[in-house]
Write a protein that binds this DNA or RNA. Sequence first.
DNA 1: TCTAAATTAAGAATTATTCTTTGTCAAGAT
DNA 2: ATCTTGACAAAGAATAATTCTTAATTTAGA
Lengths: 142, 142
Amino acid sequence: MNKALKDIGLKATPQRMAILDFLKGNTSHPSAEEIYEAVAKRFPSISVATVYNTLAALKDKGSLLELTIDPAKKRYDPDTRPHHHLICLGCKRVSDIVYDFVLDLPGQVAGGYQITGNHVEFYGICPACGQNKDQKKTGQEG
Amino acid sequence: MNKALKDIGLKATPQRMAILDFLKGNTSHPSAEEIYEAVAKRFPSISVATVYNTLAALKDKGSLLELTIDPAKKRYDPDTRPHHHLICLGCKRVSDIVYDFVLDLPGQVAGGYQITGNHVEFYGICPACGQNKDQKKTGQEG
DNA sequence: TCTAAATTAAGAATTATTCTTTGTCAAGAT
DNA sequence: ATCTTGACAAAGAATAATTCTTAATTTAGA
């Protein structure tokens, strides 16, 4: 009887509730492994497959965003409102950018595509990493 | 004596020249596997490790962009000028968007980060996929 | 409570990528 | 002209993230 799960048409199992509970309000953009480890603390018998299954189900239902920001692994974001991200090139931390940009593409630039959404990734150095000045990489897709 | 390679301080080996040759002017944003397969046609003895090593070297030298657009694998882009991308949610094709957006972040939104770059991903349906109307997913990070 | 359908656990399998080892080749030193 | 050294390539093993398979269990509704 978990409302959030039932509302999207998924059976409310304890494993799913634990995952949803960990995700709720979480702004750290965790990976599947991090989610697994966090949930396993309170639920030692859970398997990684269950975590992946649940994440896929939530994503399918539109209750979770799968971010491709990190080249090494997928990151998940329970905040499904349109927003953007800022990635620290030093520590790879991902922060939310809640700011509305005007991103209209002229017809000829859109090349006949029917545009349905967008997402901006900003790259930079976070305050903490700015201290230890051993960063060098800049720019796009760093 | 391949100028492009020597210019960035890498030895001009036949394997590297073949990879660079395939990449030059290529706007298909190929994956490492696609690059390997293409180069292997003319150079059957090449190994995947060589492809990955070369891509890493080119990326390090700033002559190649590694795109994290595709959740399944990395894509590579020889066009290192700042530009954006448009992904078809149907066929996953990636097109270049050469258009300059104003993406300034107000100080408080940037949260103390030193911003060094950005990249916009647009999602949509390409003309070809628009015909076969069996697409459903829209929006961010589709 | 009973039952059908959904879900779980466990681990094997797959896929992308990286690592290790060994051999080769090219350029400068001898 | 040959030797030496270091960069590079090939081959395949290793690793890491993710997906698949199967059998047992649990959930939700009748």
